[in-house]
Write a protein that binds this DNA or RNA. Structure first.
Length: 312
DNA sequence: ACCATTTGACCGTC
DNA sequence: GACGGTCAAATGGT
């Protein structure tokens, strides 16, 4: 939340801000661009509600879809480079040295957290892996498991991952991906069991931490010494989503994304690039069956009388 | 019988 | 020599 407010502030930029922006990392610029785009879309949406006669329900849905896409993109970028965004320049220099070392091996690390009691089997990220080794690692209580893609020999896929149970939280597993899949095997099911989101943290059901572990979907560039902080990142992420949601997630209805996609507009359903892109974003982990969708009552907004939107 | 996992041995790097 | 990563024989499950 703090992160986003900082960035939002930057969107109301002065000249000096613009100068600073020149020095920003490319990723940061992209995030800001996405947020600026989102802001613009939100303004257009607001105008639409203020002058309902000049906007159709369909165009509102398109606006909302684009708005969501902007925030989705920004979120994705934040999760990719949140560490860098938070750091001071000195810190960046220091950490870049370590990062370079890690990047040699193209190491990417994600952290998931589950609490179903079937963690080992639920670490399925959609790819098929074969365990080829396990080692006790110096300084760690828990051994590290070594996995390679099942198609290593049949398709020459060099993907490898390492899985290690977290010491701090036994329900957490640290997964390090090395090399990416070249087997063209698309992730099968990213099941809710494998990693899922729970509204009531600490209560029944799996504990939220990361929605997908597949490196193609959500990959956190986290240095090994900073793995634990990735939990905070995800918590932040969840907070940020709440910030941009337009409802109380606890009372929301289930958002039917497929319906939305079909109903946005007959002309955009199949041909429009934006629709296709949205589908590709949402179908992967469709919130249709996920009651934690942060934007789930946007659809309802469109059906509400306009007056009811504004609390006086 | 086949396949996946386990586990001690081996190898390369520091 | 310590350590992390990989190999491959042994083992277990179907």
């Amino acid at each position: 939340q703090k992160q986003v407010s900082v960035i939002s502030h930057k969107t109301q930029q002065s000249f000096s801000d613009m100068v600073m922006k020149e020095e920003m990392l490319t990723e940061e610029k992209l995030v800001i661009n996405e947020l600026e785009q989102g802001k613009e879309l939100a303004n257009r949406l607001m105008n639409s509600f203020r002058n309902p006669s000049s906007f159709s329900k369909d165009s509102n849905k398109i606006l909302i879809s684009e708005l969501l896409l902007s925030y989705e993109n920004a979120m994705a970028m934040l999760s990719l480079d949140k560490k860098t965004l938070k750091r001071s320049p000195e810190r960046i220099d220091q950490n870049n040295k370590k990062r370079r070392l890690l990047e040699k091996k193209k190491t990417e690390k994600v952290k998931i957290c589950v609490g179903t009691g079937q963690e080992e089997t639920c670490l399925d990220d959609g790819y098929s892996w074969r365990k080829y080794g396990q080692k006790d690692i110096h300084g760690y209580k828990n051994p590290r498991g070594y996995y390679r893609c099942t198609h290593r020999f049949t398709r020459g896929c060099l993907a490898v991952k390492q899985v290690q149970k977290s010491e701090e939280d036994p329900l957490c597993y640290e997964i390090k991906y090395l090399e990416s899949h070249t087997c063209n095997n698309t992730p099968q099911s990213i099941t809710k069991n494998s990693v899922s989101v729970s509204k009531e943290e600490g209560n029944r059901g799996p504990k939220l931490l990361v929605t997908e572990e597949s490196e193609d979907i959500v990959v956190k560039h986290v240095k090994s010494e900073e793995v634990m902080s990735s939990i905070e990142d995800v918590d932040n992420k969840k907070e940020i989503f709440r910030t941009f949601s337009f409802s109380n997630p606890e009372t929301e209805n289930i958002f039917d994304w497929k319906n939305l996609m079909e109903n946005i507009s007959p002309t955009t359903t199949s041909e429009s690039g934006i629709t296709k892109e949205l589908s590709s974003v949402f179908v992967v982990d469709s919130p249709t069956d996920d009651h934690d969708s942060c934007f789930s009552c946007l659809e309802n907004i469109l059906d509400l009388p306009h007056d009811s939107l504004w609390i006086k």
